[in-house]
Amino acid sequence: MLTPMQKDVLVELFNIHVGASANLLSVMVNQKIILSIPEVELLSGSELNMFSFEQAGIFESGEAVMSNVKFGGEFKGSAYIMFPAAKAKALVSACLREDLSTEVSENGNLTFEELDVIKEICNVTLNSVIGEFGNLIDEKIEFTTPNVEFNLVSSMTPEIIKGKNKYILVLLTSFFIESISVKGVILISLDDSSVKIIINKINELLEEQNE
């Protein structure tokens, strides 16, 4: 659905935006963040089944922390950040500059304050990625306050990500926080009108390049 050139531009844009977001996350946890090359796919609902979380090689089993923000305006969709629940405590500890040795396997071991830290990490990271898209397309984006959930990986079906949208632009990247070995994914789903807005912008950029 995307030409190789359009895809190339989108990967580059996403790379820049996620890079900026990782920089912010790095400041918060005071750790170096290693990013993967982002994967970008424009998929229909049925194809999304092929794009499982297992393919990201991150959630082999167990529970995951998933935070999402919905965003609206002309450009609308949902953005998700996910990482293994067992690493949530380590991420919080890094943020609070505490001892990094502790890990937990259940969300019950996280206090309200620790969940609040997770929410703030996700808020800053996702707002940065999506907000930069708003700057790119010159449209103001309205965000909801972030939501944090603990889910079994097996229960996180593509339908959750897809929602009511017919076509989904999936932007997937993984990040690795070196000293605490936290690996996670950022995933953004957009509806078809928002996809068109981005594609139009990409075409504009390509035309400018060819002038």
Binding site: A20, L24, V124, N127, G134
Partner: peptide, 27 residues
Amino acid sequence: ISADVQKSVKQEVEEYGITLFINKPLD
């Protein structure tokens, strides 16, 4: 002090009369 990096949002709140707009996190 906000996580929102959008220029349009910054411009909008600046019009309300603020002293400073800083993006989170605070280095």
